[in-house]
Each structure stands twice: as structure tokens, then as C-alpha cells.
Design a protein around this nucleic acid. Structure first.
Length: 798
DNA sequence: AAGTCCTGGTTTTTT
DNA sequence: ACCAGGACTT
């Protein structure tokens, strides 16, 4: 159990207000106010009444936010535990904490600085009984949630093919984001999920209550419910939180908005920071409307605009401004810089996605050498920002081929990996035998000969006796209901669970030793050791890391409490590598050089987004474009391809409509926009690469013509290629892709290139497996079920 | 109960 | 093209 020692002074008398002269004195000598610009200073020093800080990209909003906190503390306006400061991500919370600490010199404190979810957990643990939970409730992850929903769907005789659990999870999440309890779902939603959505939602909430659990959405929803139905509880917190600060306000959903509004009604000292132009999470419930409506919601609000940008050059800001200007209903900001104009944003069209990757690879290498009249840049200074994660593949393939170090951000997070979840389920079960979901997860992992039927027997036994699944399993074993190998294994499992539980209580061993023992005795470690698939060693590595992470906690329970809210994965930053990530993942980051590939209609803006959300969707895509461009400090390169393979099919592409919105004075056109394979329907042979045939009226065409780009060698090469090569064939390929089932194509001594491990040499051939010694690590690996391309060592494929 | 084949779906992602 | 989950087979 977490202790509440940091806020036990909750009901203590209010802090005495310092006199004005005292404030002025303290403020004068306040080092944290140095170096703020006029707007930032206004945002920091306006302490009475609601404040909306409209902070454009790169305008120093975190600085303003942290200085405001320092100022509140420095002037004695509030004590650290009277300030509520909420962020969306753990990363942002960490950053704010450390910056406040650096400004004020107090390392700890600020117990109420955290993510919405972390703060809600803290609150909900104190008031859980008001929504029918116990204080030690567990927080379900998405897997548990889905397993539960699947059971409910199966129980209500719905065709789970047409109505999958994932869809229901999405619907329920959406409702929770809107702060609708089952009773509050409006009648207009009655047809959701084959008309049974609301009933299933209600059943789901009941199941959660029975399990003493809640999901992520509940953390907020329950707190909103409590605040709405228990005036005394609300009043207590309204009194306590003298100042409220909110980061990324444009990303708040309805539930978060209600939560904030309820809390802010006490002192009305709420300061929201956000940028309506950077709202890119509408698809997961964020309401830009919240920030647009701020002045209505909080009468007397003071709006401060941070418009001086410290990140990007003039041309980059100009290009970004041109794109975002096409959106309607903005609050409006005009970013400016006192720095240089710098290089124009570059725009280049390519024949296909592979050529785009090839060109960007070369460009990165040349920037690394410092050509183009710019200083040499380390790879860490460069990023490729894509719309959809499948675009990353082309770059990975290419960079592996030329040996360019890269780092991919995103993908499955550490705590979402299968092996980590399995291990956690064992830990959860050892701590509490009541955790039915954890039991279901691991009962047959590793394989114990317990199939659907055995699991069903356990479930019915448990239900008819009104006990948990572990107890049900015990009864089933004792009653001889499960026979043979499975029965034996189950008996053993139950026995071990008992012993682990006892040992945890007795604290005979440290929790780290216990964790290792649990993984060992359960057979889970052995399960992966015996697995010969190439990912098995990585999984074992992850398990080791998990055990190592345990060392930072007092006990297993404490670890489990924290982990459910921290889905971060730490990235090693010290290596010099190019970063590849999605535009969404790039929000809040900055890089000297940014590449924005794949600017093609349908891909970016995404067709699906436009289909599903129409103009609203398009505007969000446009904000994404804005976010992308404004990540760049010095160099920004936008590109598109005329042809792209989509789900294995070649498709001719239209340049993104956003390209036409780029103001030409801020753009350097390397090849003309409008390059695409002869228009729609003509994908295939000899597509025209002549701007005259494209019917595009981009303001950039003339510019391209003026620059004589159409006569440039690059353009001629494109034209020549377009005439030679059918679209359905890869451009030029010297790598031969060989399926490992055809090992006969190899002989020992062959040089090979592997997508994951790089270059190597075939040492032995064993049936359908190759034993390859890879150059890089000098280690031998048995490779099976992998695609290997043949490549001569001296002939690096281009 | 476990291994193999087939089908459908494929934007973005935090907590 | 590629993956995951479910139906189907052993």
C-alpha cells in the first residue's frame, strides 16, 4: 500500500498569505524570473483567476509552466502540496518535476504533480468505497480488458465475428472519455454494438466491481462520479488545491475537462497551457473544443499568447504557418523568431517509396559529412517523421543495407510485451490468489496440457462454489475433475502458488529473489530457454530486465502498483543514430534536421481519417503536418513518391494537398510537385513524369520551372526511369531475397545479408537452417524462418 | 490438447 | 506483404 505521508497535512489550516510587500521582495530576488520574455512573464505572474497560456510550438511553454510553479512557491502563495499540476505522460511529469526542482532547489515535494491517471489513482484509493471498490483495487491493462469483454460477449450470444471485443472496448472507452456511466449513455447511442452496447457496458462495469478492478478510463470516470455525487469530498479538494496547472490542455477529453472544472471551482486559479494547432489526439477522445471554449468556461480568463519561437528558423516557421492557416476556427497565433531565416524548406518528389528512402539515406550521409553549406550534423540531430508506422519499414530496410545506424521509436512498449505480461501475471497471482484474470492468462503458459475444456471445468467449479479461479482449480483437482497430465500439472501449480504466497508473506527472501524463483519454478524461464525461435533470447533478456527493475522497489506489491501506470520504455540516447518515428510520437520533440516523407493524399492526409471524420479529420491531419514541420530547427525536407506499394499492391500517388498550401517563398523545390505516375488508373507502364500532363496548379510549379528543375539531371533521370520501368517491378535490386526453406541455394562460405543482424558468412547448413556467423558481433546464430538476402561483401547493394 | 492452415484487417497511442 | 487470431486437422 502506498502511504499518504506526503499529503497528510491535507486538512491542516490554510497557509498564511504573505503580504504584498513580502511577495514583491521575494519576487525581486527570484532567479527563476530571469530570462523570461514579456509574454512568458505575464503567464508566470498572473496569479489571480483563470489563465489560458496559448503556447505555440517551441515558444518555451514548459519553461513558463515550471517558472509559474516556482513563482507560486517562491512568493509563498502556495505550499508544494497545494498545487495540482497535471500532464498526460509520465515523461512530461518527470521533466516538470526535475525542472521545478532545479528552479526551487527543493528536490522532492510537489506530491500532486503527475499524470491525470496517476493523480486519479491516488485520489481513488482514498475514496474507492464510494464507487463500490476496495482501496487496493487493481488496474487492468488492455489485454485483461479484452479477455473480460470476450467472455461477456460470448455469454450474451452475440456473433463475435461481426461484433468483435476490440470494437466494444473502443466504444466503451469512448463513452468513458465522455464521462458517461452506463446510466448516462444517451439514447442516441442505443444502437451501438448491435443494440447491446449499453447492456454490455453495464455488465462490464459490474464484472469490474466484482473483481475489485478498474480500467484506465475508470480512473477518471470514477473520480468525476465521486466529485459529482459527494459534495463534501469535492469541497475538500477544491479547498485544498489553491492552484491548478494543466499541460497540453488541447488534448483533454470530456472526462478530464469535467474533472478539472469541478476542482477549479474552488479557488478558480486554473492555468491551462496548450496549443489548439497541435491537437492531434481527437481520435482518442481529445476535444479541441475544450481549449477553444476556455474563456466561456472560465469567465474572466486571462489569455496569454506565447508567440516567440526559439526553435526554428524563419523559413520553417513560415512554411508551417502557411499550412496551418488553412484550418478554420483557430484561436490564432503568429509565431515569430528573432533568429535567422535559414534554409528554405525543401520539397522533392520521387519515383517510388524505395527511391525516397534511398535519397533520404544519401542526404543523411551528406548532412553527416556537412556538405550543403551547413555544418556537419550528428545522426542524433536528424529524424524521419512518418504518418503511419508501416512507412518506417522502407527506411529500416534501406538503412540496414547501407549500414546507417538508426533508432525506431514506438512499437510495443516494454510492459506490453507478451513475456512481461505473463511474468507480471505470475507476480500478481503470487501476491493475490483472487486475481482471476492473471490466472486465466498463465494457467496454460507454459503449456501444461490444460486446454479449453480444463479451463472451463475450473471456471464452473469456481463459479458454483463462489470462489476465485485458483480456489476453483484447487477444488477441481481435489475432486478429480481434471485427469491425466493436466490434472497433475494443475495440482502442482496450485501448490506452488500457495507456497509463493506464503513465502512472500514471511519475507524469507528478498522480492527480487522471489521473482526469480517464481519465474524459474513456474517453468516460464525454461519455456523460453527451450524456444528456438530467434526472438526467444530477446524475451529472456526482457525478463532479466524486468527482474532488475524490481530492485528499485520495496516489494512486489509496490512494484505492481506502479507499473500499471508507467508504460514508458526508456530509450538509450547515447548512441549516434537517426531517429525514425511517427509524427504523433514526435510531438514535443525537436531536431536540427527533419525529414517528412510520404506526403501523398490518402497516406497523409490519411484517407481513413478523412472518411471517418470529414473536415474535422482533415484539419487534424493538417495540424499533424504543422507539428511535423515545427519539429525542425534548421533543415526540413518534405518528400513524396509517385508510386508506392500499399499492402503489396503498387499504387500511383497524388502529392498531398498540404504541399499546395506551402507558401512558395519558404520552399525550395528540388523536383517539381505533381510528379506522379500518369494519373489515376494509369499506374503501370511508362508513366509520364511531365508536369504539363498533370493538371496541377500548384504555385510551386512555376517556381520549379523557373529554377529549371525540369532540366536538372535528377529530373531527367526520373523521367528516363519512368519510361523504362513498369511500376509493378522494384526499381533496381541487387539484393536477392531468399526464403530459408530453400537452403539449397546456399553453400558454406556464402556471404549473406540479414535484415536484423547485418552481414555474415554461412558456416554450416543443417536441413532448413543455416548457421551463420555475423560480422558485427562475431557471434554465431542459428537462423531459421528468416528471410536472408544474398549479397557479395564487396558489392554493397545500393 | 497442440500444431497447421486460412482468413481478414491493416493510422495515429497514453495511461 | 504481413501479421494475428480462429477454424480446422492431427
Amino acid at each position: 500500500m502506498s502511504s499518504f505521508s506526503d499529503d497528510d497535512a491535507f486538512e491542516a489550516a490554510a497557509a498564511p498569505q504573505p503580504s504584498l510587500s513580502q511577495q514583491a521582495m521575494q519576487a525581486r530576488g527570484a532567479p527563476y524570473l530571469d530570462g523570461l520574455n514579456v509574454a512568458q512573464r505575464e503567464a508566470v505572474e498572473t496569479l489571480d483567476g483563470p489563465v489560458l497560456m496559448l503556447a505555440g510550438a517551441g515558444t518555451g511553454k514548459t519553461k513558463a509552466l515550471t517558472c509559474r510553479i516556482a513563482h507560486l512557491l517562491g512568493t509563498g502563495r502556495a505550499r508544494p502540496n497545494e498545487i495540482l499540476a497535471v500532464t498526460f505522460t509520465n515523461k512530461a511529469a518527470r521533466e516538470m518535476k526535475s525542472r521545478v526542482a532545479a528552479l526551487t532547489g527543493h528536490v522532492e515535494g510537489m506530491p500532486w504533480l503527475g499524470t491525470f491517471h496517476a493523480i486519479c489513482v491516488k485520489l481513488l484509493r482514498r475514496h474507492a468505497e464510494l464507487v463500490g471498490l476496495k482501496s487496493n483495487f487493481t488496474i487492468l491493462d488492455t489485454d485483461d480488458q479484452l479477455r473480460l469483454l470476450k467472455q461477456l460477449i460470448a455469454a450474451s450470444n452475440i456473433d463475435d465475428k461481426r461484433w468483435p471485443a476490440r470494437m466494444l472496448a473502443g466504444i466503451i472507452d469512448g463513452w468513458k472519455n465522455k464521462a458517461w456511466t452506463p446510466a448516462q449513455v444517451p439514447v442516441g447511442e442505443a444502437s451501438a454494438f448491435d443494440g447491446k452496447g449499453v447492456a454490455l457496458y453495464s455488465a462490464y462495469q459490474q464484472r469490474l466491481k466484482d473483481l475489485n478492478a478498474c480500467d484506465f478510463g475508470d480512473l477518471l470516470l470514477h473520480m468525476v462520479t465521486i466529485f459529482q455525487t459527494h459534495e463534501d469530498v469535492l469541497a475538500q479538494y477544491q479547498r485544498w488545491f489553491r492552484y491548478i496547472l494543466v499541460d497540453e490542455y488541447q488534448d483533454t477529453n470530456v472526462a478530464q475537462y469535467l474533472w478539472l472544472r469541478l476542482l477549479a471551482q474552488g479557488h478558480k486559479n486554473i492555468c491551462c497551457v496548450g496549443d489548439d494547432d497541435q491537437s492531434i489526439y481527437g481520435w482518442r477522445g481529445a476535444e479541441v473544443g475544450n481549449i477553444l471554449r476556455f474563456e466561456k468556461d472560465f469567465p474572466g480568463a486571462h489569455v496569454v499568447r506565447l508567440e516567440q519561437n526559439y526553435r526554428s528558423t524563419g523559413h520553417i516557421l513560415g512554411a508551417a504557418a502557411g499550412v496551418i492557416a488553412a484550418n478554420k476556427g483557430r484561436l490564432g497565433k503568429t509565431l515569430f523568431t528573432e533568429g535567422e531565416d535559414g534554409d528554405q524548406v525543401r520539397l522533392i518528389g520521387h519515383w517510388d517509396g524505395e527511391e525516397e528512402a534511398r535519397w533520404i539515406g544519401e542526404e543523411i550521409e551528406s548532412m553527416q559529412r556537412g556538405t550543403r553549406g551547413n555544418a556537419a550534423l550528428p545522426l542524433n540531430a536528424m529524424a524521419i517523421l512518418v504518418r503511419a508506422s508501416h512507412q518506417m519499414r522502407a527506411f529500416e530496410d534501406r538503412f540496414l543495407t547501407i549500414g546507417l545506424p538508426y533508432r525506431v521509436i514506438g512499437g510495443p512498449r516494454f510492459y506490453e510485451r507478451m513475456e512481461i505480461r505473463d511474468a507480471m501475471a505470475y507476480f500478481r497471482l503470487a501476491v493475490s490468489h483472487d486475481d482471476d484474470l492473471a490466472f486465466e492468462r498463465i494457467v496454460n503458459t507454459p503449456k501444461r496440457g490444460l486446454g479449453d475444456k480444463a479451463v472451463q471445468t475450473i471456471q464452473t467449479t469456481a463459479r458454483s462454489n463462489g470462489v476465485s479461479l485458483v480456489e476453483g482449480a484447487r477444488l477441481a483437482v481435489e475432486g478429480g475433475l481434471i485427469k491425466g497430465k493436466g490434472g497433475k500439472a494443475l495440482a502442482e501449480l496450485v501448490q506452488r502458488l500457495d507456497r509463493w504466497h506464503r513465502q512472500l508473506r514471511e519475507e524469507a527472501d528478498t522480492h527480487v529473489e522471489m521473482a526469480e524463483m517464481i519465474l524459474d519454478e513456474s517453468g516460464y524461464t525454461g519455456f523460453w530457454q527451450n524456444d528456438k525461435t530467434p526472438e526467444a533470447p530477446g524475451r529472456l533478456e526482457n525478463l532479466k530486465e524486468l527482474v532488475k527493475a524490481l530492485e528499485n522497489f520495496e516489494n512486489l506489491q509496490g512494484f505492481l502498483e506502479h507499473v500499471s501506470l508507467i508504460m514508458d520504455n526508456a530509450q538509450e540516447e547515447e548512441d549516434d543514430k537517426v531517429t525514425i518515428m511517427t509524427l504523433h510520437a514526435a510531438k514535443g520533440l525537436e531536431f536540427p534536421a527533419v525529414f517528412l516523407p510520404g506526403w501523398e493524399d490518402g497516406l497523409f492526409p490519411s484517407q481513413r481519417s478523412m472518411d471517418e471524420s470529414g473536415l474535422k479529420g482533415l484539419e487534424e491531419e493538417r495540424r499533424l503536418a504543422y507539428v511535423g514541420i515545427t519539429r525542425a530547427e534548421k533543415l526540413c525536407t518534405i518528400s513524396f513518391a509517385a508510386n508506392r506499394r500499399v499492402y503489396g499492391q503498387w499504387q500511383s500517388q497524388m502529392p498531398s494537398r498540404f504541399i499546395d498550401e506551402l507558401p512558395s517563398e519558404h520552399v525550395e523545390v528540388l523536383t517539381p510537385p505533381g510528379l506522379y505516375g500518369g494519373g489515376y488508373g494509369a499506374a503501370g507502364m511508362g508513366a509520364e513524369a511531365n508536369p504539363a500532363s498533370m493538371g496541377m496548379t500548384s504555385n510551386l510549379h512555376q517556381k520549379a520551372a523557373d529554377a529549371n528543375v525540369y532540366n536538372s539531371p535528377g529530373w531527367r533521370r526520373l523521367q528516363a526511369r519512368s519510361q523504362q520501368r513498369p511500376v509493378s517491378q522494384p526499381l533496381e535490386s541487387r539484393t536477392m531475397v531468399i526464403d530459408m526453406t530453400a537452403t539449397s541455394s546456399f553453400t558454406t562460405g556464402d556471404r549473406v545479408f540479414h535484415q536484423k543482424f547485418g552481414y555474415g558468412e554461412v558456416m554450416e547448413i543443417e536441413g532448413d537452417k543455416l548457421v551463420i556467423e555475423f560480422d558485427k558481433a562475431g557471434e554465431k546464430k542459428v537462423v531459421a524462418k528468416f528471410v536472408v538476402s544474398a549479397a557479395a561483401a564487396d558489392d554493397v547493394p545500393f
